[in-house]
Design a protein around this nucleic acid. Structure first.
Lengths: 195, 195
DNA sequence: ACAAAAAGTGACCGATCGTGCCCTTTCCGG
DNA sequence: CCGGAAAGGGCACGATCGGTCACTTTTTGT
């Protein structure tokens, strides 16, 4: 009922935090349990296995990501304004909100991209859905709308700049990372919009 | 002497392979030893600790990366031709040469970007050196040479497309990943070169 | 060929891994 | 307020973790 759900949420939260830092494969049930103030066996009342816990964490991570990045997108007109806001919040997500550990999704993507299983399947499905949402948004940049292929190409570059920003900011401690990403994205938008 | 060096190289090779797949934090000495045909204690005659083994592996990984990607760059004129060759071989490196596990450096970068220690220090130092080499190359695209800031901005985008390609190809199994990356890079080169 | 050095083995250490079982405590609907 | 269900703890399991030590086998320089 109520209590259980709250504990489950705390477990998921802590798992996400640790997995973003050390990777899903390197976290341990004991560490998560201790950080959350539970015994290892207490954890198993909420998840049947470590993998079930990881799956729930990854799924919740996507929900949190979309809720954060898309927060004020619904109030904005489709197209450029909305895309620029999403990009800006996406940068926030990487360097501010998730200050400790960076984006869980990016971490999981490079960790699990060659390990078959339900984790990778979930990752694929939700990343594809996110890219499709962005691609749909890209089409509003032009009238008549650009082709699917062109929209996907723009999404590719947008996501690329997010990944580049993440490396520059998080690994190389470059404070100019945000400016570099924004400038690259602005240039992309400028040469993509309706003439 | 001779025999030891060969074994050490095999260990490093196998460690790199496994770390690219599962991450440095998730590999175990036992697995590496077994795969290489050694006992765990045999491993310790070549490395004093797991971390020393990981450091040697990461360092050697950079050497192999540069040797592969830069292979025919020295025979090419500086500037656009050389950069395009490097980019092409960089894509090769991700999707062909390192078919199993992808690029060790990319994997290590996202895994270790928030774990302080000698591994992250080494990563920073060598990634910075590589970016500086590329930035120097960028300057040959223009006469008079572009500013440091502008060169770094172009390097940022180049590296971003590499990361984007890696995700598209390895996580999303998108066979069009290479074309997307090449097209984005071509466009970048076109608007960067000497007018 | 020989001795010293290097390479490699097997047993073992304490700690921790994910997990199952059984018990107690706490919560919540009737 | 009560009874059943949910939440959580204690404990132990077999396996594996990184690492040490004493020992044997192989390699190498001379």
């Amino acid at each position: 009922m109520k209590k259980g759900e709250a504990t489950r949420a705390r477990i998921i939260d802590e798992t996400g935090r640790q997995a973003a830092i050390r990777g899903f494969g390197a976290i341990s049930l004991g560490d998560v349990a201790e950080a959350v103030g539970l015994s290892k066996s207490g954890l198993f009342k909420h998840f049947d296995s470590k993998e079930a816990m990881e799956l729930a964490t990854l799924d919740a991570g996507f929900d949190r990501f979309i809720a954060f990045v898309w927060a004020d997108a619904d109030d904005l007109p489709p197209g450029r304004a909305r895309l620029e806001n999403v990009f800006e919040r996406w940068l926030d997500w990487t360097e501010v909100e998730n200050a400790a550990g960076g984006c869980l999704i990016v971490a999981a993507s490079t960790e699990l991209d060659d390990q078959p299983g339900p984790m990778r399947d979930l990752l694929q499905q939700r990343v594809r859905a996110w890219r499709q949402r962005l691609a749909g948004e890209m089409k509003a940049l032009r009238e008549p709308p650009m082709s699917d292929a062109e929209a996907e190409s723009v999404v590719f570059q947008m996501k690329s700049f997010i990944l580049g920003h993440s490396e520059l900011r998080r690994l190389l401690d470059d404070t100019g990372a945000r400016a570099a990403a924004r400038s690259a994205f602005d240039s992309l938008m400028a040469r993509t919009r309706n003439p």
